[in-house]
């Protein structure tokens, strides 16, 4: 807790004070009036939202497809191991894989050029928000697989059969039982996915060399850029703002969980 708390305290303390140690909100108002900072926030929120929704949907689908197979079989092992790698480790390596695929000389880019589609003349670049979102989804889906699999496993086959014997079609079983039962886990996992994408930086760093305008880039620049004096504290203020966003996400997470506790053991 000390190792977590001390840096946090120093961020919060630094953000609210001047170099002389006087309480101030100047750092925050600087960020709010900075167009670059605000657009970075907008980008971060957008990328968090989109990759969370995409990752959650596709990840659940993939997890369900895997679980429908042979329990403990090769597919499950491979997907589970691969998910672990991609979700927790792969930030930098996968950025390079994407550059190799969709970079200006990437394999897919070149292939598409052969069949007459020029991505880059169409305005696409791997260092764009779209490119970043595409790369983020690459670890968001595996993370969703990891987070949602226990919940999917918790769906008992008896429920579907009981529903069937009571006259429910597959669709009404989904609507009245499976989806309500899964919703808390699904929403909770989606929120974590959002937080994950919102805070992620490694992939962006490797993919764009720190040129894309998302909040972590701004923080990094403020701290290491040394362009303008006193930028440090503005970076810290940005950090506090990130924490606030994440805090809201966590509150949402707890609300979903406690709502589910009405009928969850």
């Amino acid at each position: 807790m000390i190792f977590l708390g001390l840096p946090l305290y120093s961020v919060i303390h630094g953000a609210f004070t001047t170099d002389g140690g006087v309480l101030t909100f100047q750092n925050f108002s600087t960020t709010f009036s900075s167009a670059a900072d605000m657009s970075a926030f907008k980008n971060s929120l957008l990328i968090g939202l989109w990759t969370a929704l995409l990752g959650a949907g596709l990840g659940t689908w993939l997890a369900a497809a895997v679980l429908a197979g042979n329990p403990g079989g090769l597919v499950q092992r491979v997907v589970s191991s691969a998910s672990g790698v991609l979700a927790y480790f792969a930030g930098v390596p996968l950025a390079f894989a994407w550059i190799a695929t969709l970079g200006s000389t990437g394999v897919a880019t070149v292939l598409l050029q052969h069949i007459g589609i020029n991505l880059y003349s169409g305005g696409f670049t791997i260092a764009s928000l779209t490119g970043l979102a595409l790369a983020y989804t690459y670890f968001q889906i595996p993370l969703m697989v990891i987070l949602i699999t226990p919940a999917l496993e918790g769906l008992r086959p008896q429920w579907e059969e009981a529903a069937q014997s009571l006259g429910a079609s597959k669709l009404s079983y989904m609507r009245h039982v499976a989806i309500p039962v899964l919703t808390p886990a699904f929403v909770g996992a989606t929120l974590i996915l959002f937080g994950n994408a919102f805070s992620a930086y490694a992939t962006a760093l490797a993919l764009t060399g720190g040129t894309i305008a998302i909040v972590p880039t701004q923080i990094n620049e403020a701290l290491n850029g040394n362009v303008i004096a006193n930028q440090d504290r503005v970076g810290l203020a940005l950090g506090v703002e990130m924490i606030v966003v994440v805090a809201f996400v966590m509150i949402g997470y707890w609300m979903v969980q406690s709502r589910a506790r009405r009928w969850l053991q």
Partner: peptide, 17 residues
């Protein structure tokens, strides 16, 4: 859950401070 969602970049910023 906290370390998962607290942005590492923020943690790093605090450390630098």
């Amino acid at each position: 859950i906290l370390p998962i969602v607290i942005p590492p970049v923020v943690l790093a910023a605090g450390l630098e401070q």
